[in-house]
Structures are given as structure tokens and as C-alpha cells.
Design a protein around this nucleic acid. Structure first.
Length: 453
RNA sequence: GGCGGCAUAGCCAAGUGGUAAGGCGGCGGUCUGCAAAACCGCUAUUCCUCGGUUCGAAUCCGGGUGCCGCCUCCA
């Protein structure tokens, strides 16, 4: 099954056709000026699932995910806190990795930092100047937007229409208000690197052009990021790379829609957001993955407590089934193929449909469980395990190890004794106490069992 | 002002020409000491609205209304 994704540039679904067996992907990561929020996580979860799916399809995936660790805001915020800008960047990077690790998001193949690629950035800036598409001015270097006719091809904007927009930042050093900085002269006490244009730092946008080219070359397969990056960030990335080299940049563009809060996009600048770390105080990481993947990546959606609670209930339906299935089929099998799932994910990565199929499997599994059909149960479980693996869910398989298991068994037999003795008051008291620490005790035909929430 | 997207049950959400997936919630039933879980049944004759195309439209076209995003740092 040929994988197709909606490409922002051509505005249609486009087959993914890597030149060899490796799919080269650049995913715009964070500018580590502040702590990660759940909006960031949406993109990371989608990309993680896509990567797993592509690997299932037999591809190698080279995923480059940048950390932009120097820019105006990084400097500004570190000053506000009175700490070194590198400390701020490191702290936020660390937190990002902590939350993505917790979410079972695989680390990218490379996670390049802007500050470690200054040489590549300077070379790219030099090339743009040589080609006559950028100019130096008082130590700044600006991209000359009007010199590059294709400018606007990704976002569908036209220069003259942008010009009439009222919110363009003017600068004395720019020839045209639309021009953007590819290199910025350092003001006193700002961090800097030596360059042909004096002490300075990269402009925002250039690091992504330079690092993607460095790790993936020209015409790599997919460039991904949040919808809000289409303009100007990705538009500028294309302009810089193509103007400098004359070669094509990314072959296809994938944009993940915004996660809104109270009807509005989450935003760092206004503080209108939910921190990633706050989610894990209340929810299992799989719940956020469920919440994310049950909506198509190109649809805006709303982050709400109700939505998360629903996702939690949905996730529990899966884990409850898995726990119950284990009692009959202890060895969790893994299907090797699942064409129907392949089909829906190949069609613009329709994870909501895939999630629907997961629940169909749970249904089939539960039916098999109710009727005692072991073969049917084994088949449903094997497919379910494959689907969960592809989507990146990580149900807890361990029961807490030997000592804990012994203790749990003890509690189960204690309740069994109490019920046998018709001491229901005490049996129920025990169940309530267990539940208070997050374990569910259930009486089934096969006896009492304990499951984790 | 310019560009783009979306409107499907109480809620979330698939479906892009052939007669409405799935989840949550709710109601009834089975099972149970009671629960929980699970299973069975029910829960949108209809897809914002008005026109049009078609044998046939939630799906295509046009007009309205409403919401969101981008045009400024943002995933």
C-alpha cells in the first residue's frame, strides 16, 4: 500500500516516494525559550506514530528534529530570570525530553542544536549573499524577499498583499519591510559568534534550512511541523535554501493543526496554555496519545478536561480487555500484518479510523472472551497488539514484579475467603480500600482479579 | 482588509457521489450477594442554512450564517 500524505505545497495528497529505502524527515522542533505545552506534544505524538508506521511499512526513517537554542526570546527570557541563556535552553530541552520519553515518543535520529551548526549557517548565509538574494546592513544580513520570485509558494501569500498588511515589523536596516534577518548583529552583552559580517547570531528560520540540508541533503522526503509555522517560518526556510543552492528543498510538507484551549490557539506569549507536565499529574501518558490520535492531524481540536476524561475511559476499555485477555491467552501474540490498518494509515495517516479499528478489535476480543472462543480471542489480541504498537501505545504489561504480585494474590485470596464466609461488608471494605490506591478489584466467573487503572 | 480551514447525535469524531465507523455518555436487559467489567438491544430517516448539478449528495457547485487559524514570536 502506497503511503500518501496531504502536502501543503501542492495542496493535495501526495505519495511518499523516497529515493531509497530511507525516508528522510525533518520535524520542526521547539525553540526552547519556554517549557513544552500540550500543543507541542500533539505534533510530537503524531510524528512518533507516523514514524512507527513507516518503519512497519519496511522503511528506515531518518528523523531530524531540531532544537533552536538561540534566538531573541531565549536571550530575553534568560535575562528576565537572571540566568545564562544556555542554562535556560538546556533546562527546557531537558524537560522536553523528559515528557516525550514519558509519552513513549522515540528520540529522533538526530536532535541538532542551532548553536552547534553555526558553521553550516554561516556558509548558507554566504551562499545566499553570493547569489544576490541577501544583503548585509550594519552587521545584520537580510533576505531580499523581492529578489526571489517564488516567495509565497508554500503559504499562498503574495508579496504585495503582505505589504498591505499592517503588522509588519519595520526596521531601519531593511530595504523592504518584508525582508527578514538571516543573521543578526549582536547588541552589547548578547551572545555572539564570529562571522564575515561581524559578531552576531543566526536569525530565526535559517537554522532549519541549514540543519535539514546538513543531515538530509536536498529534496528530502518530508518536512513537518505545526500549522502555525507555514508562514513565515517554512516559507522562509524554502526561500533561503532554494535561493542559496538552486536545488529543491523538501519534497512534501506536512502540517499538524493547532490544539486549541477555550477556542483559541495555545500561545507562549500570552500564557494561554496547558503545560505538558501538568497533564501527567492527572493522566497516564497513553491517555494523551489516545486523545491526540482519535482526531485527524489536520483538524483543529480543543484541549478540554472532558475530552481527556473521555480519552481516559476509552483507554481503560483497551487495558481492561488486555488484562482480561491475559488470563486466557497469557502469551501476548503480535500479528505480522494488518492490511486494513495499513490502508487507512496510508491514506493521509487517518489515525481516527485506525483508532476505530482498535475498538472493533476490542469488541471482537470481548465477544470471544464472553463466548470462550480462544482462537478468535488470540486473533483479535494479536492484531490489537500490532495496532497499538504501530500507533505507539504502551499498555503496562508488567504486574509489578514478584513481591508485588505475591501481595496482590494475597489480597485476592483474602477477598475470596471473606466472600465465601458471606462477610460481604468486610469484602467490600477491602475492595474500596484497594480502589482508593488506584487498583480495581473485580469478581468474575473465574474468580476475583485485580487490574491497574 | 488579504489568504486558508471547518460546521456530522447530549459530547468527541470518521466518512469527500450510492444511502451515516468508532469512542464517551444515557436508557433497557443478561450476569452478580452488591459492584465492576463484559455481552445483547436502543440512543442522527439525517449531516449549519438556502438554492443548484445528478437516477442518486453529508459528500460536487453557488449564495448566506457561525467558528477557527495565518498575515507578528508560536507546534
Amino acid at each position: 500500500m502506497q503511503v500518501e500524505l496531504f502536502d501543503t505545497l501542492s495542496r493535495q495528497k501526495k505519495p511518499l516516494e523516497p529515493k531509497d529505502n530511507t525516508v528522510r524527515i525533518y520535524h520542526c522542533g521547539m525553540t526552547v525559550q519556554s517549557r513544552p505545552h500540550v500543543g507541542h506534544l500533539r505534533g510530537y505524538i503524531v510524528m512518533d506514530a507516523l514514524r512507527r508506521f513507516l518503519r512497519f511499512k519496511g522503511y528506515e526513517v531518518r528523523l531530524v528534529q531540531n532544537i533552536t537554542d538561540i534566538d531573541d526570546k531565549v536571550i530575553e527570557k534568560s535575562r528576565a530570570e537572571g540566568i545564562d541563556w544556555r542554562m535556560l535552553a538546556e533546562r527546557n530541552t531537558g524537560e522536553l525530553l523528559t515528557v516525550t520519553d514519558a509519552l513513549n515518543i522515540e528520540r529522533p535520529t538526530v536532535m541538532p542544536r542551532a548553536t552547534q551548526h553555526i558553521e553550516e549557517i554561516i556558509n548558507l548565509v554566504s551562499q545566499i549573499i553570493e547569489k544576490g538574494h541577501a544583503y548585509e546592513s550594519e552587521g545584520d544580513v537580510y533576505f531580499d524577499v523581492r529578489s526571489y520570485p517564488a516567495y509565497g509558494k508554500l503559504s499562498g501569500k503574495r508579496i504585495d498583499e503582505l505589504e498591505s498588511g499592517a503588522r509588519i515589523e519595520p526596521s531601519e536596516n531593511k530595504r523592504d519591510p518584508l525582508d527578514f534577518a538571516v543573521w543578526k548583529a549582536a547588541k552589547p552583552a548578547e551572545p555572539y559568534w564570529y562571522s564575515p559580517w561581524g559578531k552576531g547570531r543566526p536569525g530565526w528560520h535559517i537554522e532549519c534550512s541549514a540543519m535539514s540540508a546538513h543531515y538530509l541533503g536536498s529534496e528530502f522526503d518530508l518536512h513537518a511541523g505545526g500549522e502555525d509555522l507555514v508562514f513565515p517560518h517554512h516559507e522562509n526556510e524554502i526561500a533561503q535554501y532554494e535561493a542559496a543552492t538552486g536545488k529543491g528543498f523538501a519534497k512534501a510538507w506536512m502540517h499538524v493543526e493547532m490544539l486549541n484551549l477555550a477556542g483559541e490557539k495555545m500561545s507562549k506569549s500570552t500564557g494561554h496554555l496547558v503545560l505538558a507536565s501538568d497533564v501527567f499529574d492527572k493522566y497516564d501518558p497513553n491517555v494523551l496519545r489516545m486523545f491526540t490520535l482519535r482526531v485527524h492531524y489536520r483538524a483543529q481540536t480543543e484541549y478540554t478536561m472532558e475530552g481527556m476524561d473521555e480519552a481516559q475511559a476509552a483507554w481503560e476499555r483497551i487495558t481492561t480487555f488486555l488484562t482480561a485477555a491475559e488470563s486466557l491467552v497469557p502469551e501476548p501474540a503480535l500479528a505480522s500484518e494488518y492490511p486494513e490498518l495499513d490502508e487507512v494509515l496510508s491514506d493521509d495517516f487517518n489515525t481516527p479510523k485506525a483508532v476505530g479499528m482498535v475498538f472493533d478489535l476490542v469488541k471482537q476480543g470481548n465477544e470471544a472472551l464472553a463466548s470462550g472462543n480462544k482462537d478468535k480471542l488470540a486473533e483479535a489480541t494479536a492484531k490489537l497488539n500490532l495496532a497499538l504498537e504501530i500507533l505507539g501505545f504502551a499498555p503496562r504489561r508488567d504486574r509489578g514484579g514478584g513481591d508485588i504480585q505475591t501481595l496482590l494474590d494475597l489480597l485476592v485470596s483474602f477477598r475470596t475467603e471473606l466472600r465465601k464466609a458471606k462477610a460481604f461488608k468486610w469484602a467490600d471494605k477491602l475492595r474500596d480500600m484497594i480502589q482508593a490506591v488506584g487498583l480495581i478489584m473485580e469478581d468474575t466467573k473465574e474468580g476475583t482479579r485485580i487490574r491497574f487503572r
